[in-house]
Design a protein around this nucleic acid. Sequence first.
DNA 1: GAGGATAGGTAAAACGATATACCTGTGCGG
DNA 2: CCGCACAGGTATATCGTTTTACCTATCCTC
Lengths: 357, 357
Amino acid sequence: MTGRTGRTDRRRSAKPTIADVAALAGVSVSAVSKVMNGRDGISAPTRQRVLDAAAKLRWSPSATAVALRGARTRAVGMVAGRSPDVLATDPHFTLLISGIERELAPADYGLLLHIVGEEPGAEERAYRRLAEERRVDGVILTESRIGDPRFELLRHLRLPAVLVGAPWREDPVPAVRASGQDAGVRAAVDHLLGLGHRRIAYVSGPQDRVHTVFRRQVFETALAEHGLRPGRTLTSDFTAQGAVAAMRELLAADAAERPTAVLFANDTMAVAGMNAARRLGYDVPGDLSVIGYDDLPLGELVYPRLTTIAQDLVQLGRAAAAAMFTLLNVPHAQDPPTIHPPHLVPRESTGPAPAAA
Amino acid sequence: MTGRTGRTDRRRSAKPTIADVAALAGVSVSAVSKVMNGRDGISAPTRQRVLDAAAKLRWSPSATAVALRGARTRAVGMVAGRSPDVLATDPHFTLLISGIERELAPADYGLLLHIVGEEPGAEERAYRRLAEERRVDGVILTESRIGDPRFELLRHLRLPAVLVGAPWREDPVPAVRASGQDAGVRAAVDHLLGLGHRRIAYVSGPQDRVHTVFRRQVFETALAEHGLRPGRTLTSDFTAQGAVAAMRELLAADAAERPTAVLFANDTMAVAGMNAARRLGYDVPGDLSVIGYDDLPLGELVYPRLTTIAQDLVQLGRAAAAAMFTLLNVPHAQDPPTIHPPHLVPRESTGPAPAAA
DNA sequence: GAGGATAGGTAAAACGATATACCTGTGCGG
DNA sequence: CCGCACAGGTATATCGTTTTACCTATCCTC
């Protein structure tokens, strides 16, 4: 005891520890621990003395020490393998993160974020470090890719994981997503058909994304059900430049082949494509209808306002965090959020198919 | 030793510890520690044996244990006190974060992010927890406000901090920002004056932000230097709705008083304002010129493309992280990035003042 | 060949909180 | 009046590293 007191005295102004609180309350260290963790065996007056002492010293348990002891770090990791440029144009991640935080914060969990760019292997290294250094209790994955190696990696690292979106194949990793995933694209196709469009093109994201393939299939199925062949389908990369190139290519065709409506895989591409078309002399929606995906606020800001397929990214983030808590057996008061299926938000960028066609 | 071995055996498949590595290499625990931390006193062959053993077991020091021991958590905190909606419309934070990460990642530091919304006190609580639980080595602050209580709070909590942007008053907390802060707004004013504009309005962000006040002052000074009174100045809130309202108010004035150019405090407001004007029948830039601030990718996507004042948010983030490292005495290989002063990016939303005026 | 320097280690005490196992005083039944 | 149960604690080992202080061969020098 003497040694301890000596040390404490020597640095009285430094960070208080549980021992300081115990000393102030006149009880043992473990009594304080019991009080803080709500275990019984401590009488009400003693409990109050401890609480008062803790408050006076502004003490709360060191997260580090608790983590070391209990193997629970109260942090969740997320690795975003995208370049800052893409992140900046596309608030997709930001929305997801803010949803995740909504759920984490009340449980006193933190989000450890790693933005690693797109160099190959960078993402894997990040997960490895997160796991080996035991910095987080689990990780949230986004954007499952075809042949995604991360599931295997994380299983090997014994790091609990939750996926946002559809997995590339059956996998024990829990995945959160809305029911009725196909509703959005279907509604978009119906909307366009109802407006008289018959040649509808699709500009997708990178081929290796699971949702890319899925949405394209829905697109083609929906058209086929109405006895139509799918229009042209281009693969792009989620960037504005990619969208401009795709749009140029689509509009270069003969008038008889040229699409009268284009579905884009995200809002950023849709807006960029729409502007590219206008610069080439096409009126939107007069000559060409355009639909995006995500329903970012951006869609409201542009002229004409973008018709788009809304998906509830904030809720998706919340659900992912909730699923993580379930996986970790962390009690979380809030109900698991329901995620609405993607749905069409008709605005100004879609209109009747041009009569000339 | 016997007890230790027994335990290790019982859970052979679990996470390896330094003791396992030491056993495999046939040396003592502290020998391993010395090797991993590059201290001398270990011969080359022994060193190699240890390295091999660590690699074979895929072991790396537990961040938690290191943090407990050394009081260094190798994580930096950031608290964003904004609602998810604002975050989604405005990639400002995303860019900053990605700059910060660029610097943190190579040093094996993580970013612990907290998005706390705008409820009063939420931000303070977040910092408190970060500090009391010793989860991070320091925090990065953004958006200094007039009378900002965070500096005092963090000083009291003894938590190292770095501010992005100008402090609200002289403060020992290091602040990173570009030199020539006024260059952007000056260039914008010169640009507009050169195009013949004489009635220029300004739509600012919330009054309590330091940069709001600063930029407005620069705006007024620049006009005054050319012998002009400032046009109307409205206070808004960085949101699209706010910008629309401001624009309506500005355009409701008599033709003789109505501004022919408007400077907005961020790109989101500029784009929203621009569209509001167009909806009211004004041509941009024919009847009205519009300038934004930030140079978000959004500005390239809209039609007409937005003239704006660029500030290098990614570099700013990098610089903030670098300053944090300096504060923490963490060796960081990379040179401190230079931040370019804000500068004008002339695009399509500005043009000659209307002749009728 | 004894004394000392030095390379190459080892053992053990931190770091801060928690859980387990063990005390101690009081009240009460037998 | 002894023993037992139980409330209300206390003392201590533990988590995985790092670090300080301390060994122990080996070789060199005189």
